[in-house]
Computed example of a mutant assay.
Amino acid sequence: MALAREVLARNDCPARSGSGSGSRFHKEYISELQRRQKWSKDGGHLKLGEMVLVKDERLPPNQWLLGRVTQLYPGSDGIARVADILTTSGTFRRAFNRLCPLPVEDQNCIPGGPAC
């Protein structure tokens, strides 16, 4: 906000020139100050056989289903957003936003080595 105030307070600001395009300048400039970060990077992809936690509103807050990805379903753009998850309770089909992939550590990795 301080940066926006500083720029708008300058005498050479187009908003103060009286040309009538000041309101447009304000809208375009201020909307560019805070960019959306949601889709700016790729979120990573699930792989077959990967272990995940399944979010489920029916379970208590500290209880999670543990499962393994058995099948991926790509959309029309070729990007998979839905997966079948095998758990002890059965197989569920869930969207990726309801899954939390677990970090996997390589068993052959030497702690502190270059590949870890």
Rank of each mutant, 00 (worst) to 15 (best):
I85H: 03
E28F: 10
S31R: 12
L102P: 07
D56E: 09
L59V: 01
S89V: 05
R93F: 00
L3G: 13
K55V: 10
A83Y: 05
D77V: 01
S76M: 09
A80K: 03
Q71W: 06
Y29G: 11
L72Q: 09
V7M: 08
H45C: 10
R81I: 02
G22T: 04
L46F: 12
R93G: 00
T88M: 06
T87M: 00
A115K: 13
K41C: 03
L3F: 13
P14E: 09
S40T: 11
P74S: 05
E28D: 10
C13Y: 03
P114I: 09
S19E: 12
F92Y: 13
L46N: 04
P74Q: 08
G67T: 03
V7Y: 00
V104D: 15
L3H: 11
F96A: 07
R68V: 09
S89T: 08
L8P: 05
V7C: 04
L3T: 12
L99M: 02
G43S: 14
S17W: 08
N108A: 15
R24L: 13
K41N: 04
I79C: 14
A80Y: 01
Q63G: 00
G49C: 07
K27R: 15
S23C: 02
Q63R: 07
R93I: 11
Y29D: 10
A115I: 05
K27E: 12
W39K: 09
G49Q: 04
